[in-house]
């Protein structure tokens, strides 16, 4: 198990390394070469003079050869900004002020802040949205998927097929706007936009603000997951060991829950982990529709303002999340299925 874990973590680190290289090349040399947008020019503010640009270049280390720049990016990502960088970029300011400006992911062009602080300020919103949505869609899809697998062609099964079709074919922003208009605007059941921080003592405001966007987001996923749960369960219920369990005299609910569900859950867990990892990088459409200041919304803002370090930072951050999700999925699968541990 430990070997397995070490191997997966090393593999994940390698993937992150490749992503950093891709991000560096795309947002550095390729961007400059293809679009004539020099990061230094963007950073230097409106209508900068050539001298100003040169100064910014020196300040950010952009006058160095590309391999040195990449090495610096990597080092910063792993160890954080060096004292030398601090002295160069924020001379004379306190450590706390400087931390606001400098970080592992670099500094935003558009705002005088580090990309780290931007990401960490937005991440709780996205994280909350993703968790609430994930809870909702799993609570919908597992029971419905299982029930329609137990009674294929029943009314429930047909109903869930319709639900799947509707859920998959209507875009989220459309359902989102409908929900906002009727449930929030017309009947005032939910707030129109905004986010409240989570608090242990009173989580209700937090949940109240998230419920509508999370539900809309969840519907889309639930549709897909009902389908997968149903087909996995149908396959598993036809397995020989399920017949054995019935021949032992196990009740139908025991057969379904103890024998079939665990075996059927592997692909569901795998997909769930990856989807959640992906969502944590930002649910752009939902965040924009419901005015939530999450990572997705940040990515849109950054892209609009040509804020290259922020965009690159979000890409890299999401990539890391997906890699981590992948490793967690592997570990969960290995605990669910003893046969996987061997590999």
């Amino acid at each position: 198990m430990v070997r397995f874990l070490i191997r997966r973590i090393l593999g994940g680190a390698f993937v992150v390394l490749v992503v950093t290289l891709a991000v560096f090349v795309l947002f550095g040399p390729v961007l400059t070469w293809k679009s004539n947008i020099s990061p230094a020019r963007l950073y230097a503010g409106k209508n900068p003079s050539p001298q100003q640009i040169e100064r910014v270049k020196a300040l950010l280390g952009l006058d160095q050869p590309y391999y040195v720049q990449y090495a610096n990016t990597l080092r910063r990502l792993v160890t954080g900004p060096t004292q030398d960088e601090r002295d160069r970029i924020c001379p004379g300011s306190t450590a706390a002020e400087c931390d606001q400006l400098l970080g592992r992911f670099g500094s935003s062009f558009a705002k005088q802040r580090s990309v780290d602080s931007l990401i960490w300020s937005r991440f709780p919103v996205t994280l909350s949205l993703a968790i609430v949505a994930a809870l909702i869609w799993m609570l919908i899809s597992i029971p419905f998927g299982v029930l329609s697998a137990i009674r294929p062609r029943s009314l429930l099964d047909r109903g869930s097929t319709v639900f799947v079709l509707v859920g998959q074919s209507l875009p989220v922003y459309y359902i989102g706007l409908l929900a906002l208009y009727f449930l929030a605007y017309k009947y005032g059941l939910f707030p129109l936009s905004g986010y409240e921080n989570f608090s242990i003592t009173n989580p209700w405001p937090w949940l109240y603000h998230l419920l509508l966007p999370a539900t809309v987001l969840a519907l889309q996923f639930a549709a897909l997951y009902v389908r997968i749960t149903r087909s996995q369960m149908l396959d598993t219920l036809n397995e020989d060991y399920v017949r054995t369990a019935r021949a032992k005299g196990a009740s139908e609910s025991r057969v379904v829950v103890r024998h079939a569900l665990r075996n059927a859950s592997l692909p569901i867990v795998t997909m769930f982990g990856l989807d959640l990892g992906l969502l944590l990088g930002g649910a752009i459409l939902i965040e924009v529709t419901f005015g939530l200041q999450g990572l997705g919304a940040l990515a849109v803002e950054a892209a609009k303002r040509l804020d290259v370090p922020t965009t690159a930072g979000i890409v890299l951050f999401s990539a890391i999340l997906i890699v981590v999700a992948n490793i967690i999925v592997d570990v969960v699968c290995a605990t669910l299925d003893p046969r996987i541990r061997l590999e």
Binding site: E239, D240, Y241, T244, H259, N263, L336, D337
Partner: peptide, 10 residues
């Protein structure tokens, strides 16, 4: 088939 008649995860 004894290969498939026992639950693989228990």
């Amino acid at each position: 088939d004894p290969m498939t008649s026992l639950n693989p995860v228990m």
